[in-house]
Design a protein around this nucleic acid. Structure first.
Length: 565
RNA sequence: GGCCCCAUCGUCUAGCCCGGUUUAGGACAUAUCCCUCUCACGGAUAGAACAGGGGUUCGAAUCCCCUUGGGGUCACCA
């Protein structure tokens, strides 16, 4: 028993506080979770909130909901009540917020100072800047080194000046070999790591110090994290040695990039909006998007980000689509959590044997560090969409309907209100095979929500062709508009407004007047009730719109088409 | 710039560690055709890669070196 307990891995996901989970973070969490859970171990979440400037508020752990949605649950960490009522988190090694563990870090920090392994440094920001500039002028990387003992008199003088010391680690001047299960071993030459800060002047530990102390105290055995931490690992290892801690196994994951090779970032949304604004030459915010002050700040400083609601309104005004970056963005767009996990796992890992489709259970059983990719992956939304499409078309109709209903409650309440239960169910059956996301039934059928008296008709090539506008009909042949006029009369006489009855009437008409070509009748009807040449199957569409609305829309369409001719 | 790491179709990748079984496999995307009331789905077919150069070897995508390209890091941010 005890021997098996010893080999059970403990992993953790340790983000700084955020309201949203970024896809890169989601993948790190997924891999960490899968690694531990597949080996009977446990998975911890810890909040790295040691930066007081990025102060945390209530929304600071909003990303927990995203993790839960993905099916990633944690044994230890912040407590979270899932939508199903169960509680996730808690645990014996808390607090899981670093800002609440200051005395722990101080204890170890004092120990290092007492042993001469760390020391107070009193340099001001200006002095450090000067040192950096100096190093830069010699084309060298700046490395802080112990600058000599500070006498008691000097120390008193600094305190009198109101200066606050930081604590720096006295890094041994030896070569340091980083062991990494993904990237392999790498040796940094002696002197490469400087005397880095372990306690800031505000008394908070730096990331490097807190992470080392917590990983030890929480029993973390395996650390999977972003590749940007790879070189930092040397700092963590010298610290572990100085404190007499064991060394966890490390694995550094490559970053996820955009198709254009840029690093995927939350700023990408603003990038898209700024580009569109620039192209249109807008100098003021469109009405109902963001305030003038927000606009000014945003447009003059590329580092300023619009909040999500503002960004969505702006995107609508600009008619651009915001890139999905956060897990919640994908949820909003109608992606399935199991598909997102599957696809995320494929970015940087593969099970081999040409297996691509799998669930988290499979991932848990098969995931290992030996098959993790060293190279950065580009996030291919098109392939993600294809995976999502496959999952949706392969879903039992009842499941599709149920999940769309959940989605609609959350993001499309207006469709629910307008359609009612029966028509909502019909929309689901009519849309499943042509839906790529849970949002498609709504996103691509906005005409269902339109008012009969004002629904717009698209004036494009396809519409004109289907209606026969602008082109002389072949000898004696009827135009689409002619068919529409005739069908208006036939439809008006149908008492039993069902797909079957409508189709039968249309077929009979087409057989006699359109050489049996139902398409030349269906398309004008489609334009009539939806405003364009694209909709769900036409008989379903007519039922969804309803008889009265359909007739009214067709009348308006005829009048509109006549005005074009 | 110093230091560290990486390199297979357009993209995600299999194969590489343990050289020959590879005319380098799969998926997404692309092209053409078929199906079709629109859109989509689906079916069929096709094109598409070992970054470049040196070695080692009977033989290299697989091992070694160099070049080029890419990434990370060099904060009192994580």
């Amino acid at each position: 028993m005890s021997t098996t307990t010893e080999v059970r891995p403990v992993t953790r996901f340790a983000p700084s506080p955020s309201g949203h989970l970024h896809v890169g973070g989601a993948r790190t969490a997924l891999f960490s979770w899968a690694f531990a859970k597949g080996r009977g171990g446990s998975f911890i979440i810890r909040i790295e909130d040691t930066d007081q400037k990025r102060s945390s508020d209530a929304a600071s752990v909003g990303f927990l909901k995203d993790l839960e949605w993905l099916g990633i649950r944690w044994e230890e960490g912040p407590e979270y009540v899932a939508p199903d009522g169960s509680t996730v988190g808690g645990g014996p090694n808390g607090s899981y917020f670093q800002s609440e563990r200051l005395e722990v870090y101080n204890r170890y920090c004092q120990k290092l100072i007492a042993e001469g392994k760390a020391y107070e440094a009193w340099d001001s920001a200006e002095e450090l800047d000067a040192l950096r500039k100096d190093a830069m002028s010699r084309k060298e990387a700046f490395r802080y080194r112990f600058r000599g003992e500070v006498s008691d008199a000097q120390r008193a003088q600094f305190i009198a000046e109101g200066r606050q010391p930081v604590v720096r680690f006295r890094t041994p001047q030896v070569a340091i070999t980083i062991n990494d299960e993904v990237l392999g071993d790498a040796t940094l030459p002696a002197g490469e790591v400087d005397d880095f800060v372990i306690r800031k002047k505000d008394g908070f530990p730096t990331y490097h110090f807190a992470v080392v102390v917590d990983d030890e105290l929480m029993g973390v055995t395996h650390v999977l994290r972003a590749q940007e931490h790879f070189t930092n690992t040397a700092k963590h290892m010298v610290l572990q040695d100085a404190l007499g801690f064991r060394r966890p196994t490390y694995g550094h994951l490559s970053i996820i990039k955009n198709p254009d090779d840029s690093k995927m970032s939350k700023r990408d949304k603003d990038k898209v909006l700024r580009k569109a604004v620039k192209e249109r030459g807008w100098t003021a915010p469109p009405a109902g998007t963001v305030s003038a002050e927000e606009w000014t700040k945003w447009i003059t400083d590329d580092n300023v980000q619009l909040d999500l609601e503002g960004a969505i309104r702006m995107a609508e005004a600009l008619k651009v689509t915001l890139p999905e970056i956060n897990v919640d963005d994908f949820r909003r767009s109608g992606y399935l959590p199991e598909v997102l996990c599957n696809f995320l796992a494929l970015n940087g890992w593969s099970p081999g044997h040409d297996i691509e489709k799998f669930d988290n259970e499979f991932l848990k059983q098969r995931f290992g560090l030996d098959r993790v990719m060293k190279t950065p992956a580009k996030f291919d939304r098109v392939k993600l969409l294809a995976f999502n499409t496959d999952a949706i078309t392969g879903m039992a109709p009842v499941d599709f309907a149920r999940r769309c209903l959940e989605h609609a409650k959350q993001f499309r309440p207006d469709y629910l209100a307008k359609l009612g239960e029966a028509k909502f169910a019909l929309l689901m059956t009519a849309c499943q095979e042509r839906s790529k996301t849970l949002d498609d039934p709504f996103k691509s059928n906005a005409f269902l929500l339109a008012a009969d008296a004002s629904m717009p008709f698209v004036d494009d090539k396809n519409v004109r062709k289907a209606l026969g506008i602008g082109a002389a009909p072949a000898d004696g042949a009827k135009t689409g508009l002619d068919h529409l006029r005739a069908m208006r009369g036939i439809l008006g006489g149908i008492g039993d407004w069902t797909q079957h009855a409508i189709e039968a009437a249309a077929n009979a008409y087409a057989a006699e007047h359109a050489a049996g070509k139902i398409g030349s009748v269906a398309q004008p009807l489609r334009i009539g009730v939806s405003g364009s040449t694209v909709s769900p199957p036409i008989w379903d569409t007519l039922v969804l719109v309803g008889k009265a609305s359909a007739l009214m829309r067709i009348d308006r369409c005829i009048a509109w088409a006549e005005s074009l001719a």
